[in-house]
Design a binder for these strands. Structure first.
Lengths: 331, 331
DNA sequence: TCGGGTTGTGCATACGCATACAGTGGCTGG
DNA sequence: CCAGCCACTGTATGCGTATGCACAACCCGA
């Protein structure tokens, strides 16, 4: 391993001078800087992040806490987040909440993470509270927790979801079903609430038996659609908590030969790339997921640079994307 | 931040004793261990990975080098790899090869990574060579490089691909087209070679104009299928480099109303979960991707523990999964 | 010509942990 | 009863970097 001491020796200076030269300290002469840079290059030197982190007390490593890496949604969230963090000179460490091991806060401390992006779905505020108590900066991504404030990037489901539902109502739908996300989820709850409000405004409501809940995954949608279809007189449109769930529902319908939108219409939320496929054509609510993820990256980094600043709450708008899975209701 | 010194003070012992007690050193009395553990728990102490890494010279952080995080294939690779690494007490750091920044080897050194899993597709052996020169352990995942040896987990396309092609031939296909992966790719090259061999054995071959190449992504498949369909007298079956590419091709066909498998049959490779959807039903070559990823994790960790041991080359078998996208050729 | 400021560099040290080594008791056996 | 050993635990140190401080050399104006 090449250390700054090796570089110092080759450049004929002291180790601290190497450190200063490479970080472009103004008190180092240009000549020395050039010599040091050359020596560093010759040896293939790169400052050791471990040593630096230990010395400065901060690290450039940022944790992303997710529930289900296998979930397609996270793919499209991790990629831009990672890209942006990398551009800002930070690294991404993935963390899943495995109940088995230590508490999140402890693991953050152990891993030496500078900050954390919380993208787990549950509103459970124990973890945020612990993070705050430990002084670990964190940012909410696509979720919030009522009791603990922090920077956040979220999505306002209202415009998109309203447009979607009003389109459905205009087409003649009256019996709506829903497979929402988990109950203790800020995003899920908000979407459900908006949906109920919009329907209510049109004198409609969700019958209790037509509303299901479950994790934001394929299986939930699949099982949900199956249940709704198995019940007598299924709803004419099923609203899903997000696209991954909707895709599960859509496939369940296709599997049993139930025409979409001929027999049931299907609505999603997120507009994942898959939803736009010619094979799928899912009608859904869209927003700029890429921008949301990048925004989260910028917020964390900003928080690290200005720890005392006021919390920022960025909200992205949504819009309705009408494709092929919402049609007129069966007569 | 809670340090081992704080724990030491509370437990009434010295800092090194804390270190030893928590790592279950045999020369520490049970009574002391208990006291230390209690103090650690009371303070919520977790050993700082930075300090530990600096002290021991090794870290538990393992890098995963990928090309395209957005790619669905990597989703199903990252998730199990991460899970396995976590179980083995290691962390995962994502690295994408952005040409802009420093060389991979330098970044590995800078990040303080203990080892690296190389899952980028290109056979370019510059990076492996540099890693070797720096003494950074690494493992090939789903790729190899001829010139530089290392532990590897790969897939043998032969059985699955042979079965797939022989089924297609038995159904009457004679004109095959292909959209393979990038040229300088060990997996892509191997699949192409196997395909050509099997076809050759049956007195068939791939016409030059029917063979395309490109990155392993959706766009490649989409463009490839479009090109093949636009040429006069397209092949009756198009073999794709992998499922992600095949899904691109499949959607391109659907978009222009070309029936699959009525007009063209489509074959993939990987058997991603999406390929099994009722909406998709892609005929493809399957293997246990989950196991492959976990195997890679175990290999890296084993390599860290026994640096001198012989390189292991694990090869997973494949099998043909006949679904709905391969039918009889159009007459 | 000399004091005060500026510029450039080295010295000393700290970060949190692990570990080689030294030391302190208590115990056993001769 | 004491040499010798073992079981514990503390002291000292190092990992690679950053940074406060001291210091040397130089410059400038009075």
């Amino acid at each position: 391993m090449v250390t700054s001491r090796d570089v110092a020796r080759l450049a004929g200076v002291s180790q601290p001078t190497v450190s200063r030269a490479l970080s472009d300290h103004p008190r180092v002469s240009e000549a020395t800087k050039a010599r040091v840079r050359e020596a560093a290059k010759a040896l293939g030197y790169a400052p050791n992040a471990i040593g630096r982190a230990l010395s400065t007390g901060r690290s450039t490593r940022i944790g992303l806490v997710v529930t289900d890496l296998e979930n397609q949604f996270y793919t499209h969230l991790v990629a831009p987040l990672h890209r942006e963090l990398e551009e800002l000179g930070h690294e991404l460490v993935l963390i899943t909440e495995s109940a088995s091991s230590a508490s999140l806060a402890e693991r953050v401390a152990a891993y030496g993470l500078a900050a954390v992006v919380l993208s787990t779905t549950t509103t459970d505020s124990i973890q945020p509270a612990r993070l705050r108590d430990r002084g670990v900066p964190f940012v909410y991504l696509n979720r919030t927790a009522a009791s603990i404030d922090a920077d956040s990037v979220t999505v306002d489901p209202e415009p998109g979801l309203r447009a979607l539902l009003e389109d459905a109502i205009a087409r003649g739908h009256r019996r709506f079903g829903a497979v929402f996300g988990p109950r203790n989820t800020s995003t899920g709850e908000l979407r459900e609430q908006v949906a109920r409000t919009v329907l209510d405004e049109h004198g409609l409501q969700l019958a209790h038996r037509d509303v299901l809940h479950g994790p934001f995954d394929f299986a939930t949608g699949h099982a949900g659609m199956t249940t709704l279809l198995d019940g007598g007189d299924p709803p004419t449109l099923v609203l899903f908590g997000n696209d991954v769930v909707a895709l599960g529902g859509l496939n369940a319908a296709v599997e049993r030969g139930v025409a979409v939108p001929g027999v049931v219409s299907v609505a999603g939320f997120d507009d994942l790339p898959t939803s736009g496929w010619a094979l799928v054509r899912l009608s859904t609510v869209a927003y700029d997921l890429d921008a949301v993820a990048r925004e989260a990256a910028r917020l964390v980094v900003a928080r690290l640079e200005e720890p005392g600043s006021e919390f920022r709450h960025v909200v992205h708008p949504t819009r309705y994307v009408a494709r092929a899975t919402i049609g007129p209701p069966r007569s």
